[in-house]
């Protein structure tokens, strides 16, 4: 999933301060799952902002809505009826959702409420960590299912650097050394010979090196 976390409240206050009324839009997809922008977070943030402005004596109204997804135009369209009554939108979706809302409603200011972080997985309740950078050319088949692009701090492709110690990364000792994990996994699979094979230099064009990327399913995009 795409993970995100709420921006500092002060930043959010600054961004919506000029307006009398805003629409706070959540998303029931990834950001719900990572507890950053679902119905509940919308409710809590709406309450916090209302209280802040009430306290400041500033008239301020918030409408709350949570879309199934903010990255699909059909869902975003559901905002249309609410938008007449508000001066701006504060989106609790990931960056994709924020942009989709902004694209559809070009005359309404749209602000992000979240900092979109990474594509990741739930480590356990309440902890998410990065797993994929969307490089467009997956090597997981060679690396025992552990990604050296997303999980090695130096994005090394052929074994660890000299800073791997006790299975931890020298950049952040809380992070497992990806290559240690790869080695352990290959060993468990009885596929240590893979480790001996050199991976060729990576082509970074599919990773965005050749500009913004698109996917076109010819069969569907008729």
């Amino acid at each position: 999933m795409i993970t995100a976390e709420r921006k500092p409240i002060e930043e959010l206050i600054q961004s919506v301060k000029p307006y009398r009324s805003i629409l706070l839009a959540g998303c029931n997809e990834c950001v719900t799952v990572c507890a950053a922008g679902g119905r509940k977070e919308v409710g809590v943030l709406a309450s916090a902002l209302k209280m802040h402005f009430l306290k400041a004596g500033k008239p301020f109204e918030i409408q709350e809505i949570t879309l199934e997804r903010q990255c699909d135009p059909e869902y975003v369209e559901q905002l249309a009826s609410n938008l007449d009554q508000v001066d701006a939108v504060l989106s609790m979706a990931c960056g994709c959702g924020v942009q989709e809302v902004a694209r559809r409603f070009h005359n309404k200011p749209v602000f992000p409420a979240l900092n979109t972080k990474f594509m990741g997985a739930s480590e356990r309740q309440g902890v998410w960590s990065e797993r994929c950078q969307g490089c467009g050319d997956c090597v997981l088949g060679y690396t025992g299912g552990i990604c050296p692009v997303a999980r090695c701090s130096k994005q090394l492709f052929n074994g660890p650097c000299g800073g791997s110690s006790n299975g931890k990364c020298e950049v952040d000792p809380n992070v497992d050394c990806a290559w240690q994990l790869i080695w352990d996994r290959l060993k468990a699979l009885g596929m240590t010979e893979r480790y001996e094979e050199n991976l060729p230099a990576k082509d970074w064009r599919p990773a965005g090196g050749a500009g913004p990327r698109r996917i076109i399913r010819e069969d569907m995009a008729l």
């Binding site: 997809e29 799952v33 507890a35 679902g38 119905r39 739930s122």
Partner: peptide
């Protein structure tokens, strides 16, 4: 219809 299948209830 509201559920995002996020598993938070399953875990909590």
């Amino acid at each position: 219809e509201l559920c995002a299948a996020c598993l938070i209830c399953v875990r909590s």
